[in-house]
């Protein structure tokens, strides 16, 4: 007798469990608001990527066209596939000391795997990950970018 009760219990339990699952998918079917897909080319104007999205490496500049890069070269050394090149020069500052100054921070987007190591290891937080992802170009050489803007200088107090 007990085995029969257990048998029936099993059947009704299984049916109830199946209905539980079907309720979830059925709810989604009748609620198109739950759709999470972004319809990309249509929503291009309003599309905002999430904060952690890694689109490309950028060097943030402030309003006085100053960046924080001290040309130390740590990002270049840490880059696993050599997509960063730093060209620096020695300059004498107003105190009369010889200092390394960044002239070009070259970033090869075509070689970058967006691993984030350069951003993580930068001692002065000069680099960041941008959220632009539309990188398609017709010429490979256009993927080599200079990250520091022309005429920019080192931010005061960054050393």
């Amino acid at each position: 007798m007990r085995s029969i009760i257990n048998y029936l219990k099993e059947i009704f339990g299984a049916v109830a469990a199946l209905f539980k699952g079907m309720r979830v998918t059925g709810y989604y079917f009748f609620h198109p608001k739950e759709i999470v897909t972004q319809q990309y080319p249509e929503n291009r104007a309003t599309l905002t990527m999430f904060d952690r999205f890694k689109g490309e490496v950028i060097m943030p500049h402030n309003e006085n066209n100053e960046h924080k890069c001290t040309a130390c070269g740590i990002c270049e050394m840490n880059c696993p596939n050599g997509s960063i090149e730093i060209i620096s020069e020695m300059k004498v500052n107003e105190e009369g000391k010889k200092k390394k100054v960044l002239s070009k921070h070259i970033y090869h987007l075509g070689m970058c795997t967006f691993c984030n190591l350069c951003v993580k290891t930068c001692p002065s937080n000069a680099l960041a990950m941008g959220q632009d992802f539309e990188h398609a170009v017709f010429d490979r050489s256009k993927l080599n970018k200079v990250l520091n803007k022309p005429g920019s200088v080192l931010m005061k107090g960054t050393e």
Partner: peptide, 13 residues
């Protein structure tokens, strides 16, 4: 289409 809606997607569009 049905499968897409049940998985919170849009499906062929």
């Amino acid at each position: 289409k049905v499968c897409a809606f049940m998985q919170c997607r849009v499906g062929p569009n």
